[in-house]
Structures are given as structure tokens and as C-alpha cells.
Computed example of a mutant assay.
Amino acid sequence: MTATLTPEPSGGVPAQDISISEFGAQKAQAILAQSGKENAGVRVFIKSGGCSGYQYGMAIDDRELEGDTIVMDRGIKLLVDRMSLPLLRGSEVDFVENMMGGGFTVNNPNATSSCGCGHSFRTDGSQSPEGEGSGGCGSH
């Protein structure tokens, strides 16, 4: 297995590939504790679809796959596959609560547009994957 491990932030260390907010880490810790999976982390990935072209996905995962980038931030293990990493580099996973409930979201500096519900996005110059991305937020 060839995984890249990014250390916890400290003085003079370059920006992490991906990070998690303090509130996001608290919520993730509670979910991970309930998962029953030992040494599990939060896998963050990109898939095609959604109203803006790409859609975020997250899952509790106790597997480290070949090519994964693994970042430990605020005590949470974040796993990103090699195909998703370029689109997620510099992003922060956060947890937001609103009148509709709450959930994880991704603050992505690479996104040039996103849908109103914050679950999908597009980057500069990218088209929606073939035949996808024309629906509204309800089509995720």
C-alpha cells in the first residue's frame, strides 16, 4: 500500500491537502465512536453528478486504500483517494446546523460555482459530466 500521510499542522508546515473544522471534528468524533469500526476515519470523495457537475461524498471508512492521502487533523483521520484529491486540495470539512437540520459540508477553494444546497460544485472550465448536472438540489 502506498499512502501519503500528512502530519498534524505545526509551525512552518505547508498547508494541508484537506482539513476539518473544530466543530466538524467534534461531530465526526461522535459519529466515529458510534461506528464500531476500529481506527476508522472520514473518507471524503468526489463523484460526478449533482446540479453543478460534481458532488461531494463522505463515509466512515476503516480501510486505507492504495494511493490514498491520509491527513490527521484535530484527532480525525481524513482519507482522500487519488482521483478526488486534486479537486479537494485545500478544502475544509465542516459541520453546519440550520433550520433543515445539520450535516457535513465542504468549504472548497477550488469550486467556482456550487448549488444552493452546498453539496455539489464545478471548477473553472469544467463542464458537467455527460448528461448530468442539469437538475436542481433535489436531484442529488
Rank of each mutant, 00 (worst) to 15 (best):
P7L: 07
P9N: 09
G11H: 05
G11D: 13
D17I: 10
E22S: 15
F23M: 11
G24Y: 14
A25D: 10
Q26P: 08
Q26C: 13
Q26H: 13
K27W: 04
K27I: 15
A33I: 11
A33T: 14
E38N: 14
G41P: 10
V42R: 00
V42H: 00
S48T: 15
G49T: 05
C51T: 07
S52I: 06
G53W: 03
Y54P: 00
Q55M: 11
Y56G: 11
M58C: 01
A59D: 03
I70L: 14
V71I: 14
V71C: 10
V71K: 07
L78H: 05
L79H: 01
V80L: 03
V80Y: 02
R82W: 04
M83Q: 12
L85I: 06
P86E: 04
R89S: 11
F95V: 12
V96A: 10
E97W: 04
N98A: 09
M100F: 13
G101K: 03
G102L: 04
G103N: 01
F104I: 04
N108Q: 10
P109L: 04
P109M: 09
T112G: 11
C115D: 12
C115T: 07
G116V: 11
F121L: 05
G125S: 02
Q127A: 15
P129F: 10
E130A: 09
G133F: 03
